[in-house]
Write a protein that binds this DNA or RNA. Structure first.
Length: 307
DNA sequence: TACCAGGTGGAGT
DNA sequence: ACTCCACATGGT
């Protein structure tokens, strides 16, 4: 029943991280399907993929995976991690860090941090769960949804060196699967008032075949406008889904942490979210979403002091 | 115990 | 257009 995993392999293109930056990339509020392991590695799953990551000598990022998935992951993993996206490299350099000392600090504290490129549908589900919830709780909701309503993963078992958590046994449910789940059973997954939104979105998507694919083909402004028509998707969640699920680097999600960051670091106290979003797009430009992720990471760490 | 968490939608001004 | 508030639930 156990599946062999391949040996640890460098991620190409070779990239170095600090442990803090890798933790922020995998578990800092973009993705909710990565779990730290006792040996310091990370175990994650998205769609039917399962992989482990760790830092080798000199902070070089390495991966391994179940052997049957290895060929696919060798191709897909750099894209998922945002490491093979030349747009991000260019966008990062084009950010105004030369004239913005706070941004420069944030970039220095999280070397290697990027925007993940996650599956659109899963990203939409994750951020519909995210409203006024802490990251640890969003992970718990999604783990319950996967275990109770998702399909078992084809290769769920761990390598001996990476004891697999119970959380990695099933895929997240698809939107088609969610459409068949009674709202009461969604509430049982700790979704609270978000259950209504998820049920409503699932029903809408079931009634509009191809809606996700058509939205994914649109540029940022049009894609966001369509996302805003879904129940439970407002400005912030639409921008998160556009950024993390569609790769629109100009999206600038404004949450409570971004309000704090812009108030404390940029003097924008008492600005409304829409105004902060306008400032962010203007000040940071085409890579505003990338800048936002560094600011978000820095501010959250400042509010919760630890190594 | 309060207050907060990667907010949104609807009602009332 | 803007302001207020219900919505569920666990963390700190």
């Amino acid at each position: 029943m156990s599946t062999d995993w391949i040996d640890w392999t460098p991620v190409e293109p070779t990239t170095t991280f600090t442990p803090r930056a890798l933790a922020e990339l995998l578990d800092g509020g973009q993705a909710f399907g990565w779990w730290p392991q006792p040996d310091g590695s990370w175990l994650g799953r998205w769609t039917d993929r399962v992989a482990a990551l760790r830092l080798g000598d000199h902070g070089m990022l390495q991966w391994c995976a179940p052997a049957p998935l290895a060929a696919a992951l060798q191709t897909e993993l750099p894209g998922y991690l945002g490491l093979s996206d030349v747009r991000q490299t260019a966008a990062l350099d084009a950010l105004p860090w030369r004239s913005d000392p706070h941004l420069a600090t944030c970039l220095t504290v999280y070397p290697g941090l990027r925007i993940l490129r996650q599956p659109f549908g899963e990203t939409l589900l994750a951020f519909l769960c995210s409203a006024t919830k802490q990251i640890v709780q969003i992970k718990q909701m999604l783990a319950l949804l996967a275990t109770r309503h998702g399909t078992p993963l084809p290769h769920p078992l761990p390598p001996a060196c990476n004891p697999l958590g119970y959380k990695c046994t099933h895929r997240l449910p698809t939107w088609a699967q969610l459409a068949a789940v009674p709202e009461s059973e969604l509430r049982d997954c700790l979704l609270g008032f978000r259950a209504r939104y998820i049920a409503g979105t699932a029903a809408y998507l079931a009634a509009h075949p191809g809606w996700l694919e058509a939205t994914a083909a649109l540029p940022y402004t049009e894609a966001k406008a369509r996302l805003l028509t879904l129940p439970g998707v407002g400005e912030k969640i639409a921008d998160c889904v556009a950024l993390f699920g569609l790769g629109h680097l100009e999206a600038f999600p404004v949450d409570t942490w971004m309000l704090k960051a812009m108030a404390r670091r940029y003097g924008l106290a008492d600005w409304r979210p829409a105004q902060v979003a306008q400032f962010g797009r203007t000040h940071f430009g085409a890579g505003a979403g990338l800048a936002q992720q560094f600011l978000f990471a820095y501010e959250r760490a400042a509010g919760q002091p630890r190594g």
